[in-house]
């Protein structure tokens, strides 16, 4: 099963740290918030780094099972 990655828009402040860490997974949308474009676009380490590096705790990530 694919990775589960989500961004809570109530918390996302558009800091863009996730896009810097995992550019294939996250993009900024027109409202300046991050959206998930491909939950499998980075390895586990990068996804954990994106989750833990989000200043507003907006990212949830659960690794998929192959």
């Amino acid at each position: 099963m694919a990775n589960q990655v989500s961004v809570n828009r109530n918390l996302c402040m558009g800091a863009g740290e996730c896009v810097w860490t995992a550019p294939k997974v996250f993009e900024m949308d027109d409202e300046g918030k991050a959206v998930v474009v491909n939950p499998d676009g980075a390895d586990d380490a990068a996804l954990k780094m994106a989750m833990n590096g989000c200043p507003n705790f907006a990212i949830r990530y659960r690794a998929g099972t192959d």
Binding site: M13, A15, G16, E17, V19, W20, M28, G53, P55
Partner: peptide, 19 residues
């Protein structure tokens, strides 16, 4: 580029009042 500048900080201490 992303982010636009460093004025609001980066990383876990990124300005919480930036929004």
């Amino acid at each position: 580029p992303n982010p636009r500048h460093l004025s609001m900080g980066r990383g876990i201490h990124t300005c919480i009042g930036a929004y």
